[in-house]
């Protein structure tokens, strides 16, 4: 078990978003978090990350020592006045990744492409930029990036950390088809190296086959806690059909 939420509830002012939400996530699994607008998906994701405290309930997170959480929210965390490389360097250092100075990357950005994360920080930054196809924009100010490029840089920030828990809030927003394919690839890679992924998505048709688990948030009522479904992804379609016929 990597993450366990027990009996979580959360209010926004007077409005109860969800109550008694309990779910467990194992290492190496991908969970799709879905539900209507305002159902509390982003809030639940923030609770998982530790950014927001639940009003009641417990969050257990069993990360290995030194392991990171990769959180990709609606905002990109990018400093517009810094270059793409400077942005990545700042976040990597703040997360405790160390290495030499970047001179080699400045000289030969295109030649630093490697297949998997390297130990040296410069190589790691180059690798992360390469993964999101931003190597040739490494020295450009991030403020001039399009929404899609900024989102790719945000993804590079996450990849560089090699997080054990990856929390993605509608990560494909602003991405073109090619970048979405790249995102899918990276999620698969994260899963293969044993990371757990929680992924908020509205594109169920496209994203359901990539998930192992689905958690659907619905309206809170006397009968429902707000967690309408939590179970295997391959049974979610059948559940939806039964519910629609009921």
């Amino acid at each position: 078990m990597l993450l366990r939420l027990t009996d979580i509830s959360r209010f926004y002012g007077q409005r109860l978003i969800f109550k008694g939400v309990s779910l467990t996530l194992e290492a190496g699994s991908v969970m799709l978090l879905t539900g209507a607008n305002g159902a509390g998906k982003s809030t639940l994701l923030k609770i998982m990350s530790g950014l927001t405290a639940p009003d009641s309930g417990t969050v257990e997170l069993l990360l290995s020592p030194g392991a990171q959480i990769g959180y990709m929210g609606h905002q990109t965390f990018i400093y517009p006045q810094l270059s793409a490389l400077e942005n990545l360097r700042f976040w990597s250092r703040l997360h405790g990744l160390h290495g030499k100075q970047e001179k080699s990357l400045r000289q030969e950005p295109a030649q630093k492409s490697v297949q998997k994360p390297a130990q040296d920080l410069d190589q790691k930054l180059a690798w992360a930029l390469d993964q999101v196809e931003l190597t040739r924009f490494a020295q450009e100010k991030a403020g001039v990036f399009s929404r899609g490029m900024a989102q790719r840089l945000n993804l590079a920030r996450i990849l560089m950390l090699e997080p054990q828990l990856l929390l993605l809030d509608e990560p494909s927003t602003g991405l073109d088809t090619r970048s979405r394919a790249m995102l899918d690839r990276e999620i698969l890679k994260a899963k293969e190296r044993g990371a757990a992924v929680v992924w908020i998505s509205h594109a169920l048709t496209e994203d359901l086959p990539k998930a192992d688990l689905v958690a659907e948030l619905g309206p809170v009522s006397k009968k429902s806690t707000g967690l309408a479904y939590f179970g295997p992804a391959d049974q979610f379609k059948a559940y939806k059909e039964v519910r629609e016929h009921a």
Partner: peptide
Amino acid sequence: ALEEVNGQRQGLLLAPA
């Protein structure tokens, strides 16, 4: 204000420091 442009405050809060 530097941390309010693109939600960087959340990034700082999530850092292990």
